[in-house]
Design a protein around this nucleic acid. Structure first.
Lengths: 363, 363
DNA sequence: TCTTGGCACTCGATTCTACCGAGTGCCAAC
DNA sequence: GTTGGCACTCGGTAGAATCGAGTGCCAAGA
């Protein structure tokens, strides 16, 4: 893409003005408005001719002749790429985030769900929080608990504090002692290995135990693969989408898409994998979301990718603010997950959790 | 309410015709349409005068002079109360339900989430599934697993297959042996008691163990109270609401309400407690949902209430169908939960799950 | 050559009017 | 009590007039 950066400064300024104005007002922007914008000292006629050129180059479009201009996806893209400083949250919002992460407690799932609420509240957009995959976390404990006559439940605790469970049809009556024996065998082979890499291990003396262990192992590997491909995702504030679009059809289509967890997960993954932090309109390739933009920020623990947070809004969303919010929340969340596990208890929580150096200029 | 049942048969027939027609078309219904309806053999003029009377009595209303009539909440209420047979699902839908419950597997949460999807797909309305409270289920296993240095996670398995977990800040370094000892102490005091009724139990020899046990016990009672008051609720197909209303504001308000789990839970609870299966308009007392109707069906296991399923749609929803769907799904779910725990595995599952006697005339 | 003010023109949005028709309320006759 | 007839209401639609924000073009000026 040769022309992404080589707009002359004036054109860039005009484009930026159009985008900002349109983001703010949702109304097509006319040359007069641009002329009035700070930092632009040419007449509206000049601006008009520049706009013609910007339109020819695909950055702007007109809803109809004799209306102002609207940015195209390409226009937004330029605007986003060229954002100099990453945008800053207001002090009130920043404080809200800090306070949230100081006080939040409870289980991981609950925390992530709350985080998605925070994010959507901060920005007024719908938010998405992709829970970290557990495939790399080591197993801390494996246990089988009998339930009723021929069913047991397998409970696995991972080093990151996640608890995975799965019920197992035993096929025949199995006494508790056997389950206990099986549990300790499993514990021996699985402990401190990651979920996906639990090796078979030799046979014990008791065939009943071996049989149960085998069942459990296949359940474990199922768990591993599930944990890997369909991570949970928490969607916050979908109702905000109803504010963003006035066509009720659009709202419906977008909401319906958000309801499909798989789609949301892969959307976030795709965008992350392409190393983007913003995907605008058709860039992400999900057709029903073509009037939306997605902003993502990675969450990482010990340098390893561990999920993501994201925002979904109209293409005319407030990118600087959304980017700032996603990044700040992503960083806080990374820190939080970096701590071995959340300190429970509803009392005022420990305050050393506050991040020491906020990596702000990290681009 | 003296006049709820004492409409003369013709008025009742007219009211019913208006409601049905309006449910189908969403258009105000005029006297001519009613006259054409089956089972009514009087002229439109007669119907007009009856309608005037129905309007005076509060069953119908006019959006404006010279338009047809629309049912009021009271009108819908009459219609619902007077429904003779509870409405039947089409064979295709019925089969869909059976097949769903034959094939569904996996964990409880996942199953409930899927159930809510099923329900909203069957009816095209938003659905709600209230997960059964665990407060009465007996504890099957309690275990503490150390994570990092000073944090442990408490994992409780209940007889109904639910797994509850909570992280515990230990305050100081605790060696694994102590956790193991504490786990077995806990297991001894908690096993086969319901979560809420775990008694203290005497002291052991080791003060470190006692301390950990005490921490765990307070976590247990927290768990019990949480499990009691904020049960999880699964909302399915909220995007359907965008079809039901054309005012985008209404959609937003309703969606926003649905996002608040607590509200949804208490909505369902309230309606159930009042012994209703339908709450129309303002009957449920949740102002933002005043243009909605709620249909609920209880889920019970062994005669004990164990959650509920519900539907949320516009007041002009298809009550017979919604009631039928909610009831059928509620019954299937009750059966399913009655089975000790779901038989895992994607193979064709047991088929005795099919309900034997469908309590049809249960009013 | 670039910029600018001027000007004619476009076209969506708004307002007004006319009109249609579904629906009502009333009434006299059955 | 029921019915057909009739005058009337009033939202919705269609067309005409108007408004105004905004454009494209052009000739004059820097």
């Amino acid at each position: 893409m040769p022309d992404t950066q080589d707009l002359d400064p004036r054109k860039a300024a005009i484009l930026e003005a159009v985008v900002s104005e349109y983001i703010g007002t949702a109304q097509p922007v006319g040359s007069h408005h641009v002329a009035r914008a700070a930092g632009i000292n040419v007449s509206s006629a000049t601006i008009r001719s520049e706009m013609v050129s910007l339109e020819r180059e695909g950055y702007l479009t007109q809803p109809h002749t004799s209306a102002g201009r609207i940015p195209t996806d390409k226009g937004y893209r330029f605007f986003v790429d060229q954002l100099s400083e990453p945008g800053v949250l207001g002090p009130a919002q920043r404080q809200k985030v800090s306070r949230f992460f100081d006080q939040v407690h409870g289980e991981m799932e609950e925390m992530l769900e709350r985080t998605s609420g925070l994010l959507s509240e901060l920005t007024s957009y719908a938010s998405m929080v992709l829970s970290p995959g557990h495939d790399s976390a080591a197993v801390r404990s494996v246990q089988m608990v009998g339930l009723g006559s021929r069913v047991a439940i397998l409970v696995v605790v991972l080093a990151d504090g996640a608890v995975e469970k799965r019920s197992i049809e035993l096929g025949e009556e199995v006494p508790d002692e056997v389950l206990v024996a099986a549990s300790s065998r499993l514990q021996a082979v699985a402990h401190s290995h990651p979920l996906g890499a639990v090796s078979a291990g030799g046979a014990s003396g008791d065939p009943r135990v071996d049989r149960v262990v085998a069942l459990a192992q296949s359940a474990l590997s199922e768990l591993a693969s599930e944990a890997h491909d369909h991570d949970r995702v928490f969607v916050g504030g979908p109702s905000r989408l109803a504010d963003a679009f006035d066509a009720v059809d659009t709202v419906r289509a977008v909401l319906a898409t958000l309801e499909q967890q798989l789609v949301v997960v892969s959307l976030l993954r795709d965008v992350l994998e392409r190393g983007l932090s913003v995907a605008i309109g058709t860039e992400h390739g999900y057709e029903p979301l073509s009037s939306c933009a997605v902003v993502v920020a990675p969450v990482s623990v010990d340098g390893q990718s561990a999920g993501a947070v994201g925002l979904l809004g109209p293409t005319r969303m407030n990118y600087p603010q959304a980017l700032a919010a996603a990044r700040v929340v992503g960083e806080h969340l990374s820190h939080r997950l970096g701590t071995p596990v959340d300190p429970g208890g509803p009392e005022r929580a420990v305050s050393e959790v506050r991040p020491r150096r906020r990596a702000n200029g990290s681009r």
